[in-house]
Structures are given as structure tokens and as C-alpha cells.
Computed example of a mutant assay.
Amino acid sequence: MRFVHVDSVEPGDRLGRTIYTGGGTVLLADNVQLTVYMINTLKRIGVTMVYIKDEHFDDVEIEDVVSEETKRMVINKMSEMFESLRSGKEFNTRHVSVSVDRLLDEIMINKHVLAQLSDIRTEDNQQYLHALNVCIMSVLIGINVGLNQLQLKDLAIGALLHDIGKVGIEGEETGRNHHTWRGFEIIKAKREISLLAAHIALQHHEALNGQGIPRGLDANNIHLYAKIVAVANTFDNLISDFTEGKAMQPHVACEHVSALAGTKLDHDLVLHFLKTVSAYPTGTSVRLSTRETGVVVNQHRGLPGRPVVRVVKQEDEELVIKELDLAKNPTVFIESVIG
């Protein structure tokens, strides 16, 4: 399958991956034949990229750090938790703990897989996918820096709940009404959750140069976990249409995060991050320096910018299919991503 912009989808194309609602239920199922109405609905609810089936790439599988089933479970529990907060009710901390335990189990098994972060975002599910993505990336960074299982759980809970203070906020975020302070107070009130998780919510918008918010802390006073979540949060915001306006392509977002290393973001943590995330997610259409176009079909851990690209082209009335492993072809580069 291919990962394409919704504007290039045509009626009759078949969906390559299921799209879920904010509650974790199926919105459009894998393999459904898309109609004009469905395509227009996807655009209306904010979808910009989708997976489409393609006979030349039917064998291409998206290797995920976390399974679809677990993602649905986490999104469903987060939806219930956020709805409780909006209604002024207490949220169930046991659900948070169980969700994080399941996430950690899968991430530990698949820790050598590059995070793809290409799930389909809608206006309805984007806040939950953002929290989930930040959690996954933060744990992968935490593993790289040598955190133990208990430390990873505190980090994962804080990452998953880092934006909980946004729930129910209306109007301008100022002073103690800023979502970082509100998140800190909400999590701090839960004795079952480590205070470190509350400090992640409070500090994830602080910057090494002291120009962050809400307290303008310098590098020495920002907790390691908050520094990790800041890297993951920055990247996921950049690749989302819902937080930074027009979404950046992952490889461009990686460059942007790299540019912030040493000033706003921790330099060493950025290096660890760049080893965990795919700059060109599987299914992405690319143009190579050879003037050929192809689709990314495989990844290399440690070399996220040098994937395997399958080229399908017509030569002398014959269909030629070949694969270029950019890790083994150092003179071939990806020049651009095709819409």
C-alpha cells in the first residue's frame, strides 16, 4: 500500500488501513472501496493523508512499535478519561496504569522497530493519537538512555498525560490557567501516580535556554523526563495539521527538531530521538536523485534517512520493478517526497 495525500485519492481506491474515531471505534474499515462521499467526508473531518492499496505494493507491511489493537484500547481509555474530566468526574488511574503496562510490554518487544507515526488523524482522534505518539517516542528515547522498567513507566504515564491540562480549557491560557499548570495539579492530586509524571505535564514546554513556559526554567532545573517528552512533543506537533497548522513531512520535522538541539531541546536526547523515528514512513512516495520515483517499502534501524525504495516503471513496454536499498547505495538520495 501507499501513503498518499487525500487530494490524490480517487473514487474506487481501496483504503489500506482502518481509520478510527476518537473513541477507538471503526470509522472506515481496511479495504473499503472509497466513494466520492467518503473522500469528501475524510477531508471535512481533517484527514490529510491516507493509506491506499496498490497491487505493486500489496506485500508491503507497516511494521509498528505498537499493535493496532493496543492503540485502539489506549485511545478508548483516554477518551473515557478525558470525558470524565470534562464532566467534572474523577478519572480511573487503574485504566492509565493498565494501558501503560500494555504499551510498555509491546514497545520493549519491538524496541528495534522505527516509530512510523503515520496513523490517520481526524479532528475527533487527534488529541489521543498525539498523546499516544508522544508516549511511544518518549519510551523509545528512555530505553536508549538506559532507564529501567520502573523509570520507563513513570515516563510513559507522564508522556501519555502531558496535555491533560488542556481538557476543558476555554479561552486564553495564562498563569495558573495554562495547561501545563492545570495538568500538574490534576496529576498531582492522584496519589497512585508518581509526582514525576505531574512534573512532566508542568515542564514539557520549558526550554534549555530559559525561554520556555510556564516558569522559564533553565537546563539544570528541567527534569530529564520532561526534556525527553519535550523532544517527542515538538516532533509530533510539527507533523500534525491540528497543532502547527500545515503539517511538515517527517523528514523536514526531523531537521527542525535537530535545529532546536542545544537551545530549546537537549542535544543528546535529540540524537537518541533521531535513531527511533522513521524520517520516511513506509508507503511514502519519493523522488530519487536518479530521477526515478518509488515507494518506501522497508526501514533501517539507525539509518532512518536511508530506507529501501521500490521503483515501478515502464521500460520498452515492459513493467520493471526493482528495489534500491539506500543504505547500500550511498550515491543515491531521496530528493523529495511526492504529495
Rank of each mutant, 00 (worst) to 15 (best):
H204E: 07
H205R: 13
A207D: 12
L208H: 05
G210Q: 01
Q211V: 06
D218H: 00
A219G: 03
N220S: 07
N221H: 15
N221Q: 08
Y225F: 13
Y225H: 04
A226L: 06
A232F: 08
N233I: 01
L238M: 08
E244W: 03
G245N: 02
H251N: 12
H251E: 02
V252K: 00
H256E: 07
V257R: 00
V257T: 13
A261C: 06
T263E: 15
T263I: 09
L265M: 11
D266F: 14
D268N: 15
D268H: 06
D268G: 00
H272T: 03
L274K: 14
V277R: 11
S278Q: 12
Y280R: 05
P281L: 11
S285L: 13
S285H: 15
V286A: 04
V286W: 09
R287K: 14
S289P: 01
T290V: 14
E292T: 14
T293L: 09
T293S: 06
T293G: 04
V296I: 12
N298W: 05
Q299Y: 06
R301C: 06
R301L: 08
G302N: 12
L303G: 05
L303W: 07
P304W: 08
P304L: 02
V309P: 02
V311F: 11
V312I: 11
V312P: 07
K313V: 07
K313N: 03
Q314M: 13
V320I: 15
I321M: 14
K322H: 06
L324F: 03
L326C: 01
N329R: 00
F333M: 07
E335L: 01
E335Q: 15
S336E: 13
